[in-house]
Simulated scan of single mutants.
Amino acid sequence: MKINRTTERSIQILELISKSNEGLEMDEICERLSIPRTSCYDILVTLVHMGMLEVNIGVKRSYKIGLNAYRIGMSYTNNRNISEIISPALKELSKELQKTCFFGVLEGNKIVYISKFEPENPIITTATIGTKNPVYNTSLGKAILSTMSEEKIRVLTADIDFKPVTRFTITDRDIFIKNIEVVKSRGFALDERELEEHMECVGVPIFDEKRECIGAISASSLYRKDEDYMALGDILKKRALEISKSLGFMP
């Protein structure tokens, strides 16, 4: 397969500039991508002409992503159904972790399970597609709430009766909100046998191109004392970020 060198360099330039909030000068672009100045200049002029880049004129000219590049990126996310992106990734994650994986969204103060994938020898879970569970004792619910302000969390949980579903369920609103602060700091939530006493779940929020939380993914399995749930949370964070980026999210 023959690769067009100019096209390849154009895309490399767009990718590099997209990662810089302040924009980049031509000299820096040339240095970081090892592109000759004359070639880089011609590409930049063309990309500006096509609306793919914008020019900031200060002491030195710098380049930022243009409106046309944003429109093209938006058309990608607009033309793809969320489930088309999340379902394959969730299926692969279930296979990788050998755990039951879910994608759920918030409906009122409950979690609705939208997708579910199981490994070859699954542990039976009560949650199925369409099931609704409270936000306060699910990793999915905690993960989604962790993207909100404390004020919004208090409003959303105001009508919840914090019932002890298991002996590990958090039944005090203030303690629950402190738990959400922990979730915010580490980037993933734990359902520590709070919904089903024999199950432990890890959940991470998913974001779209507007940087808004659209739901969360989780991995569930039988509770084991020797399981490293912190490491599992870190793995899930990485996979969730990959999914979010596929939906147009830019960290």
Rank of each mutant, 00 (worst) to 15 (best):
T131N: 10
S115V: 01
K99L: 14
T147M: 07
N133R: 11
K178Q: 15
I114P: 02
A189Y: 03
K225R: 11
D174F: 04
L222D: 11
R186I: 14
G203M: 05
F103K: 02
E212G: 01
E8K: 10
L16S: 00
A189P: 10
L195A: 09
D159L: 08
V182W: 03
E200D: 01
E200V: 09
I82N: 07
I217F: 01
S244F: 04
E197N: 13
P205T: 04
M50T: 13
G187H: 08
S75W: 11
L16A: 01
V112H: 05
E15L: 12
S244A: 09
R5I: 08
K95N: 13
P164T: 10
R173N: 08
S83D: 13
L145V: 06
L156Y: 08
R186Q: 14
Y70M: 13
E15C: 09
S83L: 11
S221M: 12
S149C: 06
I206L: 07
R211P: 03
E96G: 00
I86D: 00
P88Q: 11
N137V: 12
F168R: 06
E84M: 14
E242W: 07
C40L: 03
C201F: 05
I11T: 12
R193F: 05
A189Q: 09
D234M: 09
E181N: 10
Y223K: 12
D234Y: 07
E120L: 15
C40Y: 04
V105N: 01
N56A: 04
E196M: 06
F207Q: 04
G187T: 10
T100Q: 02
R80H: 13
K132M: 05
N78H: 15
S115T: 02
I72K: 11
S218V: 02
I235A: 01
R32V: 07
V182C: 04
E200R: 05
R71P: 00
I217G: 02
E15M: 12
E92C: 08
I180V: 15
I72S: 07
Y70T: 15
F188L: 05
L232P: 06
K132A: 03
E25S: 10
E196R: 06
